[in-house]
């Protein structure tokens, strides 16, 4: 997979603090890339640098292999966390204005806008003023404005905040559809469950540094704590004897209503896994044996607290 955007050793200092300290990351084309991090970590600064709103002190940003240029901004769509539209302007007129700022002709923009408005079932909003819309309605308009010029790179900062579950889902599907059509998406959020659902890659920024980068699957597997859950039936003493010395039994969770009982094990050495399974299989009736993969939420908290 080709890389659409790479950030190389970018640092940005403000008078009082360092916003970004030697941050590098590579965003593969056609991926949904999660940009994670606690508040104030430097995510917004990084997004602004990619958008060319501010310039880095050192380092550079490459767009399709070349240093990012002013014209590239037209190939980026940005939905900031703080949404904003001109309140007194009519919805249609405003959407046209933003589309033309991104280089679309009036005709082309009108055509595409009509399609999107139809898709979202909001044709009747065209002549309404933005101040007449609810917050969620305005966000839909803002989403359309962001993606209308079919940018190669889409940057969404907390896109689901303020949406009800139905509309959040609608939006998620639209984002994934855009990715399938070839767009690359940078997705900045605190909401870890949405990261697991839609992100392929992530970068975790904490205190202005990139502390964790990679494919979501790899990261979760890599940071698994080698903990396994076993469901079984039979003699507990026999089981304990079988695995003794090979691994550590963490807890035994009794489930009265079920004929199977569960147990958590810590297998320190990956090579031991097979022998543990074999030994247990001899001793009791094994129903399941699976690795407990940590959630992104756990990884996030542990990484930020420095206990990863």
């Amino acid at each position: 997979m080709k890389d659409l955007l790479s950030v190389e050793h970018v640092s940005k200092r403000y008078a009082a603090h360092t916003a970004l300290d030697d941050v590098s990351l590579v965003i593969p084309e056609g991926s949904v890339y999660g940009l994670l991090g606690p508040n104030g970590a430097g995510k917004t600064t990084l997004i602004r640098i990619i958008n060319r709103i501010t310039a880095p002190d050192t380092g550079r940003v490459l767009f399709e292999g070349d240093e990012i240029a002013p014209e590239d901004v037209r190939r980026i769509g940005y939905l900031p966390e703080e949404r904003g539209l001109y309140k007194k302007m009519k919805v249609g007129e405003q959407a046209l204005f933003f589309a033309r700022l991104k280089g679309l002709s009036r005709r082309e923009a009108t055509l595409r806008l009509k399609q999107w408005f139809e898709k979202f079932g909001i044709q009747s909003w065209w002549d309404k003023r933005v101040e007449e819309l609810s917050k969620g309605m305005a966000q839909k308009v803002q989403f359309i404005v962001t993606v209308l010029h079919r940018p190669r790179l889409l940057i969404f900062d907390e896109p689901f905040s303020g949406f009800d579950p139905i509309n959040a889902n609608l939006l998620k599907e639209e984002i994934l559809a855009l990715r399938d059509q070839g767009a690359t998406v940078i997705f900045s959020t605190h909401n870890m469950s949405s990261v697991e659902e839609i992100c392929d890659h992530i970068t975790l920024i904490n205190r202005s540094k990139n502390i964790l980068s990679g494919r979501v699957d790899d990261i979760r597997r890599r940071h698994g704590a080698n903990i396994f859950e076993v469901a079984w039936r039979g003699d507990e003493e026999a089981l304990r004897r079988a695995v003794a010395g090979r691994c550590e039994i963490l807890e035994g969770a009794e489930r009265e209503e079920s004929v199977y009982r569960t147990l958590k094990l810590h297998v320190a050495d990956d090579d031991q896994v097979r022998s543990v399974i074999a030994a247990m299989n001899e001793a009791v009736e094994l129903r399941s044996f699976r690795e407990i993969i940590p959630s992104m939420n756990d990884i996030f908290i542990r990484a930020v607290n420095g206990t990863l």
Binding site: N51, I53, V73, R74, I76, Y78, P80, E82, R83, G84, L85, Y86, K87, F98, L101, K102, Q142, V145
Partner: peptide
């Protein structure tokens, strides 16, 4: 007004 309605952030990503 532009600053308060946060429309500035959207604008500066285009201009």
């Amino acid at each position: 007004e532009e600053k308060n309605s946060r429309v500035l952030e959207v604008m500066v990503s285009s201009v």
